[in-house]
Design a protein around this nucleic acid. Structure first.
Length: 198
DNA sequence: TACGGGATCTGT
DNA sequence: CAGATCCCGTAA
């Protein structure tokens, strides 16, 4: 499908987050192998939002969020898992969309799974990064074809499914945060088995 | 320089 | 519901 460019992402994260549902994340491994998955769950983080890593001020870790849209922001959580964000909005506006879950098209070799658990391999931000071999080395990298990661627009079928409402999105509150827990900036595709939590 | 908490996940 | 495990933000 058509690659998503930075200008499409140059909007407030609570606008971009639902628009990213149904789009595809593509991961090109150093081996040349390509992994693809449909984005089925996102969360928005924005200025004035106490849950946002850039809420207090610019630091070495969150610097990329302050920059132009279209870059990755990867961080380590609980010393164990990585989480992947897409930087959004205008240069100087610190905001991002957390990619929380993917419906993978193919399961990577290094993941052991039963057919029953297939849909759950990238159900959650930490599992997603493990499945796509994403770590801190992939932060502050532009999403673009030829790069380690890029994004693609919805296929005509998926777009039509949203318009016909055979695919519906649910908006709710974000997961795992203590501050700003009441802000409803999480979106997911209704009924999708790859969503982290319903 | 030291300290403690975190946008998670799994197994008990 | 506790534990794993490490980076980084904050305070000193």
């Amino acid at each position: 499908m058509q690659p998503i460019d930075a200008s499409w992402l140059e909007r407030p994260s609570p606008i971009v987050a639902p628009d990213l549902l149904g789009c595809t994340l593509v991961r090109q491994l150093p081996t040349g192998q390509t992994l693809r998955g449909m984005i089925v769950e996102t969360e928005a983080y924005a200025p004035g939002d106490p849950a946002c890593h850039a809420y207090r001020r610019r630091t070495a870790r969150n610097a990329v969020m302050f920059g132009p849209s279209g870059f990755s922001y990867v961080y380590l959580i609980y010393g164990v898992y990585h989480c992947l964000n897409v930087v959004t909005d205008l240069d100087g506006v610190a905001s991002a969309v957390l990619i929380r879950a993917l419906q993978l098209e193919t399961i990577p070799d290094w993941i052991e799974t039963t057919p029953k658990q297939r849909d759950r391999v990238a159900a959650g931000p930490g599992k997603l990064c493990r499945a796509l071999d994403i770590d801190l080395s992939l932060t502050a990298i532009p999403f673009a074809p030829g790069q380690p990661m890029w994004l693609e627009h919805r296929s005509p079928d998926v777009q039509e499914a949203f318009e016909q409402q055979s695919l519906a999105m649910v908006q709710t509150t974000r997961i795992g945060i203590t501050q700003g827990a009441d802000i409803p900036w999480r979106w997911y595709i209704e009924g999708c088995r790859a969503v982290s939590k319903v």
